[in-house]
């Protein structure tokens, strides 16, 4: 129950959610809602793990995972961008397709034994900072550090660069973007692909760093859905998405740790003596997501913030004022 360790582990496991949520932020900012995150994460986790077994090199595993998940996302892109079909239904279908393929191809992987994982290391100097050093910069996976870099990068890209401006235009008012000569369709395909790649990276982060291995659908255990929820809580902002992800990671670790000691705050630990009470603790991340959604939605109403205006809408050229 050391708070430093809980936060350190929270940042590590929160990195999974962070990648998936960042990808979804980018896709949704372009106007495409992709509910298939869970499926893309599963296929990422599975391909990362199996490629690493085959090649012995986790970096190749990560790259292949990103590519495969990106490829999967293009099914959704084609259906909702080119065929203008319903984004919710297509996203659900993508979850099923991704999960089904991963479970079929991943059959037997759980018995594969140990593989070489993504390297862990401490950052010199930065790890010496009191409190923050041990939490953020000590013996973390290289993927966690990549997450630190990616978050501000994504924020800067969306808010302060020209392509980022185009991205927001496509998500808010595609007809205007189109009139300015931005290729709405190509942009959306691209950002759905990037979203898929990041979801795949999230999956790879599970199977090659945070909780190594392949445990069929339990590998992700619904984290793809939590990531989609976080995007709403984050108001489509990368920085808030990162904070939310790390907080969730810490919560998950806290839930594990709280069941271990014999005493809690000087009393007998009820979760130790009645192990089945632990199931209540395991509800917490999900209950929290609901609470977070309530807070996020209320705040959005108060501040008149909102989803990208064209989120969920197919762009049909020449159709009245869209």
């Amino acid at each position: 129950m050391d708070p430093i360790i809980i936060l350190q582990a929270g940042v590590a496991s929160g990195t999974v959610l962070l990648f998936a949520a960042l990808g979804e932020v980018l896709a949704e900012r372009s106007g495409v809602l992709n509910l298939g995150v869970e499926g893309m994460m599963l296929i990422g986790a599975m391909s990362a793990f199996s490629v690493t077994i085959a090649t012995g090199n986790p970096w190749i595993g990560v790259l292949v995972a990103m590519f495969v998940a990106g490829l999967l996302s293009q099914i959704h892109a084609f259906i909702v961008i080119t065929l203008q079909a319903d984004q919710v239904v297509s996203g659900l279908a993508l979850t099923l397709v991704g999960a089904g393929i991963s479970l079929v191809l991943g059959e037997g992987l759980s018995k594969a034994g140990t593989v070489s994982l993504m390297p862990n290391f401490s950052i010199p100097l930065l790890s010496q900072i009191p409190i923050l050093g041990p939490i953020l910069f000590t013996r973390q996976s290289v993927l966690v550090y990549i997450g630190y870099l990616l978050t501000p990068l994504a924020w800067y890209y969306i808010n302060h660069t020209r392509p980022g401006l185009h991205l927001r235009a496509v998500g808010e008012y595609p007809a205007a973007a189109d009139a300015l000569g931005i290729n709405v369709f190509r942009m959306r395909y691209m950002y759905v692909f990037v979203g898929g790649m990041l979801a795949g990276l999230g999956g790879a982060t599970i199977s090659l760093a945070v909780a190594p291995g392949w445990f069929s659908e339990l590998t992700t255990g619904g984290q793809g859905w939590i990531a989609v929820g976080l995007v709403i809580f984050a108001q489509w902002d990368p920085i808030r998405a990162a904070l939310g992800s790390y907080a969730f990671g810490a919560l998950r670790r806290l839930i594990l740790d709280i069941q271990a000691p014999l005493t809690l705050f000087g009393m007998d630990n009820p979760f130790y003596y009645n192990p089945y009470w632990g199931f209540f603790l395991q509800m917490l991340p999900y209950a929290f997501t609901v609470i977070v959604l309530v807070i996020g939605s209320r705040e959005a109403i108060r501040k008149r913030l909102g989803a990208p205006a064209a989120l969920g809408e197919p762009y049909i050229r020449g159709e009245r004022g869209k």
């Binding site: 319903d86 659900l92 279908a93 993508l94 099923l96 999960a99 079929v104």
Partner: peptide
């Protein structure tokens, strides 16, 4: 693996919605 059916279900929806 019978999980193939999960993928098949997903594909059916893909084609229906398309």
């Amino acid at each position: 693996p019978s999980a193939l059916v999960i993928a098949l279900n997903g594909l059916v929806v893909v084609f229906v919605v398309s």
